[in-house]
């Protein structure tokens, strides 16, 4: 199977879906002439011309709304935010327009749109450019929220998102764009709302998504080697809808759980996972579910402080020792 980067997997998905459906177009800052701020859209302008690959001014609220308006009359826009930090300017259109249109029109107007771009922290970009905001969007009924961790999932989920008749918030990761993995040639989709067990284990479940999948996998390797603890790694892939079946099944097997996420702790994705577990797997829990999150602070610039703020394998291992009563 060909090995490609996460970036190119996304590029393939866009290219294939634009080939497949003439209603699909890509709009955003620097997507065309510049070839994409992170080169996800490389070559698309040449392949599809400026009718379908549209460079915008820096006006997130405006072009997000134009995307929603185009979706109201049946087009299938893919709106690229250079990063999700800038998408905060467009939250009104994502939440008040895209998410609610179907409901408040009594089912008349679906909004088949994808909002995509990198989220989370990269390296030393400081407070305004380093944040994982998936829980903001996941809070809103009417939106779907996905955050793939691997090239395979990135391509399959983006194709599924573009074909979905609902607004999908698609969170990529700047630090993931160069990640490599096997991606089959040809058409496939990864269903939205289905988690993936990335590694099987029996002693503890590590629940993660996006960049923290790597963190969890590294922790799992060390847990096995150093402490003889067998960790199961569950990649949520979709935050909303949340695949509670897979989560609950895993924890019923392992009896212990640590949620690893890049967002802040308060009202984070992990809080929702913990809520599901305490209701649906209460009698299977041998310890309280613990969470490893970003520190509850704006992201510092300093390299060491930044490293300390992010989830890492050491913090995951410490949490696992606690839930497995190994301290």
């Amino acid at each position: 199977m060909p090995v490609v980067t996460y970036r190119d997997a996304l590029n393939q998905a866009l290219r294939e879906e634009m080939d497949r459906d003439p209603n699909v177009f890509l709009m955003g800052e620097e997507v065309g002439v510049y070839q994409g701020a992170y080169k996800v859209s490389r070559g698309l302008l040449e392949a599809f011309n400026e009718r379908r690959v549209i460079d915008t001014p820096i006006a997130e609220l405006g072009f997000a709304g134009i995307g929603v308006g185009a979706a109201m009359v049946g087009l299938r826009p893919v709106i690229e935010f250079m990063t999700w930090n800038f998408a905060l300017l467009a939250v009104d259109q994502v939440v008040n327009s895209a998410a609610k249109m179907l409901y408040m029109s009594g089912g008349q107007i679906p909004i088949p749109i994808v909002f995509r771009g990198p989220g989370g922290a990269a390296l030393q970009l400081a407070a305004q450019h380093s944040q994982a905001l998936e829980s903001w969007y996941a809070h809103v009924p009417g939106l779907k929220v996905v955050a793939p961790a691997t090239p395979y999932d990135a391509k399959g989920l983006l194709k599924a998102a573009i074909r979905d008749d609902n607004p999908v918030v698609f969170l990529e990761g700047e630090m993931l764009y160069n990640a490599k993995g096997e991606v089959p040639d040809g058409d496939y989709t990864v269903p939205i709302g289905v988690a993936d067990v990335k590694r099987e284990g029996s002693d503890v479940t590590l629940i993660c998504h996006s960049k923290t999948v790597t963190v969890a996998e590294r922790a799992a390797e060390r847990l096995a080697a150093e402490l003889d603890v067998s960790a199961e790694v569950v990649d949520l892939r979709s935050i909303r809808p949340l695949d509670t079946e897979t989560i609950v099944t895993s924890v019923q097997k392992t009896n212990r759980c640590v949620v690893v996420e890049e967002g802040w702790p308060f009202c984070g994705v992990g809080a929702q996972v913990v809520d599901e577990l305490q209701r649906r797997a209460f009698d299977s829990l041998d310890a309280p579910v613990l969470r490893v999150t970003s520190a509850d602070v704006p992201m510092p610039y300093n390299k060491k402080l930044e490293r300390a703020a992010k989830p890492n394998p050491d913090r995951v291992i410490a949490a696992v020792k606690q839930v497995a009563y190994l301290d």
Binding site: N255, F282, D283, S284, L285, D286, A287
Partner: peptide, 9 residues
């Protein structure tokens, strides 16, 4: 008596 839910079960 403090016990985990699993231990109780």
């Amino acid at each position: 008596v403090k016990a985990s839910p699993l231990a109780r079960r």
